[in-house]
């Protein structure tokens, strides 16, 4: 009994580290495959479209909702502290520094991570990937690196979209209760903002994109066990990439504070 437990713990720890090891190897192969011809341009555009522009409505909606919620919630708190004039600044800062990037990362990991995990997983269980290897097409290059690169490039842009729609809806929500022009709202909101408040959080989402791409592709390509495995891969892609995004955010926020002081 005890031995079984120890055995299970041991195998759990071993598989934990094995997972990271395999992920590292996978990342290395994808990065190696990404450099050098042939450039899978058409596939990259297709992935960028499905990850980027097709996620736009979802991300913009999420950002807008965040902006409205921030406006509604903080107005009450700020009024209590007699700092209502700070409302635009609170909405803008909250969105561009943290809410925008994290909401975008989580939304995309949910939508894209699940898609990649399920797509690659089903390709794996239906042995399409094996067929690809046989026909001298590097699946790491054609399938993985294009998706990872698309995630890397699209996440910052989606974050910008989330920020913009969040600030706009935040303004609308604010101006409905307390009329002010968009110009004044932006002026007040950005008055104390610096580029260090704006650009590093945008670039940070490229890391989120890498996490989504690598984790989802890895989980999809190591799928085992038929359709059940495909479902597991889709779920684990979303769960793991969301988890890693939040964990990475902790490190990234601290990193930005140190390297880009505002």
């Amino acid at each position: 009994m005890l031995i079984d437990l120890l055995q299970a713990t041991k195998s759990g720890i071993v598989s934990f580290f094995e997972w990271f090891g395999e992920l590292g190897l996978f990342c290395g192969q994808v990065v190696r495959a990404a450099f050098g011809a042939p450039w899978e341009g058409r596939e990259l555009v297709r992935q960028m479209d499905s990850i980027g522009s097709k996620s736009f409505p979802l991300v913009a909606l999420a950002g807008a909702a965040t902006g409205v919620v921030l406006s509604l919630q903080t107005r009450e708190s700020l009024t209590r502290f007699g700092a209502k004039a700070m409302l635009p600044a609170v909405i803008v800062f909250s969105l561009i520094k943290e809410s925008g990037p994290v909401i975008t990362g989580l939304i995309v990991s949910g939508r894209v991570g699940a898609g990649i995990g399920a797509e690659l997983g089903s390709m794996r269980v239906t042995e399409q990937i094996d067929a690809m290897e046989v026909s001298a097409v590097n699946p790491y290059k054609f399938l993985a690196s294009t998706r990872v690169l698309a995630c890397l490039l699209m996440l910052p842009l989606l974050t910008l979209a989330a920020d913009a729609s969040g600030i706009f809806l935040g303004w609308i929500s604010t101006t409905l209760s307390h009329p002010m022009t968009l110009r004044l709202f932006l002026h007040n909101g950005l008055r104390d903002a610096t580029l260090n408040d704006f650009l590093p959080p945008i670039c940070k989402t490229a890391v989120f994109g890498l996490i989504i791409g690598f984790v989802s592709c890895f989980q999809g390509m190591r799928t085992r066990g038929g359709t059940e495995g495909v479902g597991r891969s889709a779920t684990s892609s979303v769960v793991l990439s969301s988890l890693f995004i939040i964990l990475a955010d902790v490190i990234l926020v601290r990193f930005i504070q140190v390297v880009f002081p505002s």
Partner: peptide
């Protein structure tokens, strides 16, 4: 669609 998205966000 992708171009529009990229231009708009940029």
């Amino acid at each position: 669609r992708l171009g529009l998205f990229i231009v708009a966000t940029l």
